[in-house]
């Protein structure tokens, strides 16, 4: 997979750019006037209370929602209305919830992530199988390969879908609560592998409610409140920003373990 991983963006040009981005659903403004940049190598945690527009923002960046104003560019082009097939080679998106119809096996579900790379009848070739199995190994779901997807636990299903997103070999990762329903050990390994992708040149935006994971693994945090970006920057600073405290209605305490490792908890 590393070979397919091209460096995205340069030090000057950000991989993802938002300028005054606004989104309305059924004429109700969900996010309004967001300005932000994410560069190659960045792992951005998007935090905010329920209904603050985190998922909507991610869907807009994935090109799944039209903008009501402003613009968004992913690797130099507007994602909404772009050809999905070529977009899928650059950008993968893990939805917050997925309900799968039909009893596909885990391996089949992961291989669906190779759609944009395949031609013709789309029988998985050795490259597809290798990519799928590497993604499954990294998400620790190889042992589930022959199981039916609809019979997995919630956390297992999440990890399988993450493997599907990873085997797309995209350089922009948009992950909506990738660690929700995942046990603490697996949640950390998920964050580690996303971080590793970023260190190899990818850019990741992930929505999370876990402020401790955000502090430990993210390079940046964007905090949303009522559809507006109220704070952005280095994780420890943003988590303790008064605007974030106001948004959550509760302060986030950032401290240090005896080992020197920083941690964050809602105070």
């Amino acid at each position: 997979m590393a070979t397919e991983q091209a460096k995205v963006g340069t030090a000057q040009a950000p991989a993802i750019t938002l300028r005054g981005a606004s989104v309305a659903l059924s004429r109700r403004t969900i996010i309004a006037g967001i300005d932000a940049d994410a560069h190659a190598g960045n792992l951005v945690a998007i935090i905010g209370p329920n209904g603050s527009g985190k998922s909507t923002l991610l869907r807009a960046i994935a090109g799944l929602l039209p903008l009501a104003g402003g613009n968004i560019e992913v690797l130099g082009r507007a994602p909404f209305g772009a050809a999905r097939r070529s977009l899928a080679r650059q950008l993968c998106y893990l939805p917050q919830q997925t309900e799968l119809a039909f009893g596909f096996s885990v391996e089949e579900v992961v291989l669906l992530g190779r759609y944009a790379q395949q031609r013709g009848a789309g029988f998985a070739d050795t490259a597809d199988v290798a990519a799928a199995h590497e993604a499954m190994t990294r998400c620790d779901v190889t042992h589930l390969a022959a199981r039916r997807f609809d019979q997995l636990s919630g956390g297992e299903a999440r990890r399988v879908l993450l493997a599907q997103a990873l085997c797309q070999a995209a350089t922009c990762l948009l992950l909506d609560e990738p660690t929700a329903a995942i046990d603490p050990a697996h949640a950390r390994s998920v964050m580690q592998l996303v971080r590793a992708q970023c260190e190899r040149g990818a850019v990741a935006l992930l929505v999370t409610h876990d402020v401790d994971l955000a502090l430990r693994y993210a390079t940046h945090v964007w905090a949303l409140d009522g559809g507006a970006l109220v704070a952005q920057g280095e994780p420890a600073t943003v988590l303790q920003d008064p605007a974030v405290t106001k948004a959550f209605g509760i302060a986030i305490h950032v401290g240090q373990l005896p080992s020197g490792q920083a941690f964050a908890v809602p105070a």
């Binding site: 090109g63 799944l64 097939r85 899928a88 997925t98 309900e99």
Partner: peptide, 10 residues
């Protein structure tokens, strides 16, 4: 897997 999931794989 749904409309958005299908769109995001291309």
């Amino acid at each position: 897997a749904g409309e958005e999931a299908a769109a995001s794989v291309g």
